[in-house]
C-alpha cells in the first residue's frame, strides 16, 4: 500500500489539475479580500471591508467548501477508469480495496494541505488588507472549520465510494449530488410536515452546512455549530456519514470482487 501511495503522490505532484484547483481557490480568497479592501478604500460608508465580514464568508460558505471535496476527489482520482490505468494496478497485484483506501487517504492528505493553504490565504490577506473587527471572528471561523472537517471527509468518502462502485467518474459526480442534495432536500421539505423527518434532516450533512438561524435577541445570524449542541451534532454527523459510506464502499467493492 505504501508503494502505491508513493506512486500516486508522484503522479499528483505532476498533475496540473490539483494546482489549478487549489490555485484558483487561493486566487479567489485573495480577490475577495482585495475587492473588499478596494471598496472600503474608495467608499467611506462601505461597512464590509472588515475581517468579521471576510471570515464570516468562510463560516457561512461551508456548502461551497463541501462542493470542492467532490472536485478534488475527481481531480486526484485522475480519470483512471477512462484511461484504464486502474487495470495496471490490478495486474501488478494491488487489490481494489488497497487502491480505494490509498487514494482516499491521499485525497484527504492533499485536501488538508489545500485547505490550510486556502484558509491561510483568506485569513492572512484579510488580516493584512482589512479592518480588524476583533469580535472573535477568527476563532469563530476556525471553530467552524474544525466542526465541518468530518463533513468534508464524508464528502470525499462519498465521492470515492461512488467512483469505485459506479466505475465512472462522470456517473459518480451525478450520484454524489443525488446522495448529498437530491436525498436531503426532499427530506428537509417533508420535515416541515413530518416530525421524524425533521429530526432526520438535522443529521444530514448538507442540511447541517446550510443550517443558519437568526438569534432574535441579538439580531445576528449564527450557524448551527456555533452552539455547543450543534457543534457536537455537526462533528457526529460527519463521522457517522463517513462510517456509513465506508461500510457501503467496502461491501460494494467486495461484492464486485
Amino acid at each position: 500500500m505504501m508503494n502505491y501511495m508513493k506512486s500516486e503522490l508522484y503522479r499528483i505532484q505532476r498533475s496540473k489539475g490539483v494546482y489549478i484547483l487549489i490555485g484558483s481557490c487561493i486566487m479567489l480568497m485573495i480577490a475577495m479580500n482585495v475587492m473588499l479592501w478596494a471598496f472600503g478604500n474608495f467608499d467611506e460608508n462601505f461597512r464590509y471591508a472588515t475581517t468579521k465580514f471576510s471570515f464570516s464568508m468562510l463560516t457561512t460558505g461551508m456548502q461551497c467548501v463541501f462542493f470542492v471535496t467532490l472536485m478534488i476527489s475527481g481531480v486526484i482520482f485522475g480519470d483512471e477508469f477512462k484511461y484504464r490505468t486502474f487495470s495496471n494496478a490490478t495486474a501488478f497485484g494491488y487489490s481494489k480495496m488497497t487502491v480505494f483506501f490509498s487514494k482516499w487517504l491521499l485525497t484527504l492528505f492533499v485536501s488538508a494541505i489545500g485547505l490550510v493553504l486556502v484558509v491561510g490565504t483568506l485569513i492572512g490577506s484579510g488580516l493584512l488588507l482589512l479592518e480588524h473587527s476583533n469580535v472573535g471572528e477568527l476563532e469563530s471561523a476556525l471553530k467552524s472549520l474544525v466542526a465541518c472537517i468530518p463533513i468534508f471527509i464524508c464528502g470525499v468518502t462519498g465521492a470515492y465510494v461512488l467512483i469505485f462502485l459506479l466505475k465512472s467518474e462522470t456517473a459518480a459526480i451525478w450520484a454524489w449530488f443525488g446522495v448529498f442534495m437530491g436525498v436531503t432536500m426532499p427530506i428537509s421539505l417533508l420535515g416541515m410536515k413530518f416530525k421524524f423527518l425533521e429530526q432526520l434532516s438535522k443529521w444530514l450533512v448538507f442540511d447541517i452546512l446550510g443550517d443558519i438561524t437568526l438569534d432574535e435577541v441579538t439580531g445576528s445570524w449564527y450557524m448551527i455549530w456555533e452552539t455547543a449542541e450543534g457543534f457536537t451534532r455537526t462533528i457526529l454527523a460527519g463521522v457517522l456519514g463517513t462510517i456509513v459510506l465506508l461500510v457501503i464502499g467496502i461491501l460494494g467493492i467486495r461484492k464486485q470482487k
Partner: peptide, 27 residues
C-alpha cells in the same frame, strides 16, 4: 508478472519516462 492487455494504458498528460517512473515506484 508483467502484462499488456489490449491497448497499453498510461496517463496521457505524463511523459513516457514519468509514466514508467510512476509504475516503477508502484511496483
Amino acid at each position: 508478472m508483467g502484462a499488456i492487455i489490449e491497448n497499453p494504458a498510461f496517463f496521457p498528460g505524463m511523459s513516457a519516462k514519468q509514466n514508467l517512473e510512476y509504475y516503477r515506484i508502484q511496483r
